[in-house]
Design a protein around this nucleic acid. Sequence first.
DNA 1: TAGCACATTGACGCGAACGTCAACGTTCAG
DNA 2: CTGAACGTTGACGTTCGCGTCAATGTGCTA
Lengths: 166, 166
Amino acid sequence: MTDSTSQERFLQIGEAAERARLTQRTLRYYEEKGLLAPPTRMEGGFRLYSPQDMERIERIRQLKELLGFSLAEIKEMLDAEDVRLQIRAGWRADADAAEKVEKLRRAREVTLHQIQLIDQKMARMASLRDELAERIRKYDEWLLKHTEAAGGSDATQGEGRATVGS
Amino acid sequence: MTDSTSQERFLQIGEAAERARLTQRTLRYYEEKGLLAPPTRMEGGFRLYSPQDMERIERIRQLKELLGFSLAEIKEMLDAEDVRLQIRAGWRADADAAEKVEKLRRAREVTLHQIQLIDQKMARMASLRDELAERIRKYDEWLLKHTEAAGGSDATQGEGRATVGS
DNA sequence: TAGCACATTGACGCGAACGTCAACGTTCAG
DNA sequence: CTGAACGTTGACGTTCGCGTCAATGTGCTA
């Protein structure tokens, strides 16, 4: 098995973009903006994205679409986070000590801050959700009143009983 | 007391913008784009925002900042949702019946869809959160190793034991 | 009645985040 | 070795969501 399904190979920009659900332009743009490190190239100059690159691309999408950060903000985050990779690499060849510990602390703080932001957002989203769910209940109430009053044929599209939940 | 504290009065664009944490330009822009119905005016032409207007403005902010929708998307949502207000108003003067029930169904669907989007987002955010929390644990692990190894003085800023949770 | 803060419309400007050519080089199957 | 598919670097264009004048009108105070 030479791994035909998905992971663990280097991808050219076309397939990379496709898998990431982004455009080639976007990938190049991210690179241009320093969000993505310049990927390795083939001899002819074609970009080759490693699985790690793909991971990072995915992270960028998450941070952008899910949390709504600007690319500049995302860059900051990833930059701070990159300590991780520097660790995996030749880190034990520790030139100086305390500085790296400090970097680690920084990275930890950044990540923690992200978590806090997520928690805040989720809380606010939950409360908005409640508001909307309540609204649904009102709609249902009114609809019941009006449909049973007008004793009509109730055969509009089969949307089914979508659960709203707590 | 003629209500000096906050609610229940009409505001000019200056104060309205201030309270909403937006700019006057933004409010006018929203109006221009149809997100806000043209508010009432003073005789001279100055805009006067009602409490309901203020509510709507707040909703727009929520949808934009929290969920990251575009103004166009928000407009759609609010438009569909406006059935609610048409209900509160002279609705019982029902000219025709089925059409309004249909509008209600539409509004319900739109709201339900919003809820589903929120649920999806929250799920993805939760999983991202988990990932980040896991990362924090790794950081702590490494930090422990490196600080106990280098037998250092551990008195860097009092960040405290920030809980990461499950 | 003057003066100043506040508002109005119109128009142009701007940064972010890409889209879209154009002109050209690379890869690889046949 | 040729052709189609794929990629490369500019460079200019576009949309969104406002910012920022400028010229002018309004509201209220003194």
